[in-house]
């Protein structure tokens, strides 16, 4: 089953396309990291997935073909929005009770157990909790619904490192216990390196990278070449090039991994963080990566 499938999905606000030509197929069971610069269209994509926004173009289905925003989709998706919106004047117990009453199924026992484990007093007002506790409460309310897809919009952006670690640990536990798929937008590249197994990179409203982390690491290399080296043959695409007086550092994509390295070049595997950074640094002008042969 594909937890998310989009086809030419676009969303325009007045004259500005926040997201355009987005075509994705994401199988279930993954922790999908959605990365991209601010204003790249990440939140727009997430809002489309959870049904808060409707598409201007194309279509989006979730949970194996359910239209986004349909009753079946809403029932199976839990969303934790940016800044953890909670009713500030509600007690923690009221938030739990309300979420139970807004859903067909809700695991009250799980929610209560989690809240006790977190050391949160059920009588406290949600707005009086620490940032980490608010995040954990919002996550607990989402997970107690036992969703099939958990959507998190920059959940750890405002958290301190410890709270961030605890938050992601809760997510990972839920993935292991419940088999929930996770779609998560984040700027925390180092953190994603540890947890994500699928990467979607959006820049300027368009999907730039969309693959499993395994495949991506397999297909990208950091190449250090002497500036005098001849152009390599084969299907090498430069994502990023940085030149020092003696050497050129290239982040390249191998479309067929058999392509031989030119003499004098060294190649090493690349990490998710540097790979993502390379794609993020791309300017809109060079949106189609240039073949190395064409630059020299």
């Amino acid at each position: 089953m594909n937890v998310l499938q989009t086809d030419g999905l676009g969303r325009r606000y007045r004259t500005n396309w926040a997201l355009r030509d987005c075509t994705l197929t994401i199988p279930e069971g993954n922790l999908v990291a959605l990365v991209g610069p601010n204003g790249a269209g990440k939140s727009t994509l997430l809002n489309l997935v959870v049904g808060l926004t409707s598409p201007t173009a194309g279509g989006v289905t979730v949970l194996g073909g359910q239209p986004a925003g349909s009753r079946a989709a809403l029932d199976g998706i839990a969303f934790v929005a940016q800044d953890m919106p909670l009713y500030r004047h509600y007690s923690v117990a009221d938030m739990v009770h309300q979420t139970r009453n807004l859903n067909l199924s809700f695991d009250t026992a799980y929610a209560r157990r989690r809240i006790t484990e977190l050391g949160i007093d059920g009588k406290r007002k949600a707005g009086k909790l620490s940032g980490g506790q608010q995040a954990q409460l919002a996550l607990t309310l989402a997970l107690a619904r036992h969703p099939r897809l958990l959507v998190l919009d920059e959940p750890t952006a405002r958290l301190d490192p410890l709270a961030r670690h605890d938050f992601m640990a809760t997510v990972m536990t839920a993935m292991a216990d419940d088999g929930v798929s996770v779609l998560l937008s984040s700027h925390m590249l180092a953190e994603l390196e540890r947890v994500a197994d699928y990467l979607v990179l959006i820049s300027h409203g368009r999907v730039r990278v969309d693959d499993t982390v395994e495949n991506l690491l397999d297909r990208h290399r950091l190449v250090t070449a002497p500036t005098t080296a001849p152009a390599p043959d084969g299907d090498w695409q430069i994502i990023e090039a940085r030149t020092t007086p003696s050497q050129t550092h290239l982040l390249v994509r191998l479309d067929s991994s058999q392509a031989p390295l030119p003499p004098g070049c060294e190649s090493r595997p690349v990490g998710i963080e540097e790979l993502t950074l390379a794609y993020l640094r791309e300017t809109p002008a060079s949106q189609s990566p240039t073949l190395i042969g064409a630059t020299q």
Binding site: I77, A81, D83, P85, L102, N103
Partner: peptide, 18 residues
């Protein structure tokens, strides 16, 4: 105003029923 619609309207009940 407070952004809680992102919570309230994405629950199983849906925004119209809510």
């Amino acid at each position: 105003e407070t952004g809680t619609f992102r919570y309230a309207w994405t629950q199983g009940a849906g925004r119209m029923r809510w």
